[in-house]
Design a protein around this nucleic acid. Structure first.
Lengths: 143, 143
DNA sequence: CATAATTATATTGCGCGCAATATAGTTTCG
DNA sequence: CGAAACTATATTGCGCGCAATATAATTATG
């Protein structure tokens, strides 16, 4: 059916779009306990893995540019979770470090996020399969 | 592994989040030919199906509230694609109508969007399955 | 029938997301 | 070495997305 090309419910992109917003809405009250927005939480996930990272490394990990990250990182710094400093080897780069408070927030996040897996309503295997399908989709869209 | 709970690559929500942004980025140059942003395109999809709809109906279809839709619809009106008018039966409601130009934009959109299905790199059956999984996920997150 | 409760939309404010531009530091190359 | 090309981050501006609030119209209730 040719006219179905533009029919809303057939649009895969809308399914991704609305699922993404549903995730953000579901996470919001949990993250509010940590004083984090969802994008800020993503940045903290990167730092909890690496302890520190440059702005560019965070941007590469999350596909976000400095226009998004610069003000976001300032807010995390104001909140006391990270510290930013120009690296001495290459003064163009800014390295973002976890503070003690930022590092400590991880165990709090683990407690808060512990129950989220049950909210998605599918098995762990289904979650993994869905994640892989989405990552494959993203790579094709980018390629 | 307990520490994997917060590991970025295991996060289904990040896969959804980044796939959504990848979709928006892929659509952007195509929609630019129509003078539309992605959320504006979603509103046009609703109107191309119904010819006219109230602000509330559009919001229900897209899970968007008046804080998002009111200014967006004003921009569509300024662009000449829609016309907004208070309904006479219930003056609280605003009905959004397609203009002739807005209705005509549909065939242009069909041409511009025709090739997008190949960009996602999977079969139509896989697209349908992925869409259904995402819709199921969204419902669980909302419920 | 008056008033309270509800409903539909609009406005304000803030945090993304990203394009375009600016600034400053580094590398390359004649 | 010195100018040009390049790189990393910051800033500005605009359009969402959404919470909180405001306004005006409708419905419910005493």
């Amino acid at each position: 059916m040719d006219k179905d090309i533009l029919t809303l419910e057939n649009q895969l992109c809308f399914a991704v779009y609305s699922a993404s917003h549903a995730f953000t809405r579901a996470y919001k009250p949990l993250l509010a306990d940590l004083g984090l927005t969802y994008p800020q939480y993503l940045v903290m996930l990167v730092l909890w893995e690496r302890r520190s990272a440059t702005v560019g490394e965070i941007g590469a990990a999350l596909s976000l540019d400095s226009g998004t990250l610069s003000p976001l990182l300032k807010r995390l710094e104001t909140a006391g979770l990270v510290r930013r400093e120009r690296s001495r080897e290459d003064e163009r780069q800014v390295t973002v470090h976890l503070t003690a408070e930022g590092a400590a927030a991880r165990s709090k996040a683990e407690k808060v996020m512990a129950g989220i897996a049950e909210r998605v309503g599918c098995s762990l295997d289904e979650m993994v399969a869905l994640r892989e399908n989405l990552n494959s989709l993203r790579k094709h869209l980018e390629g």
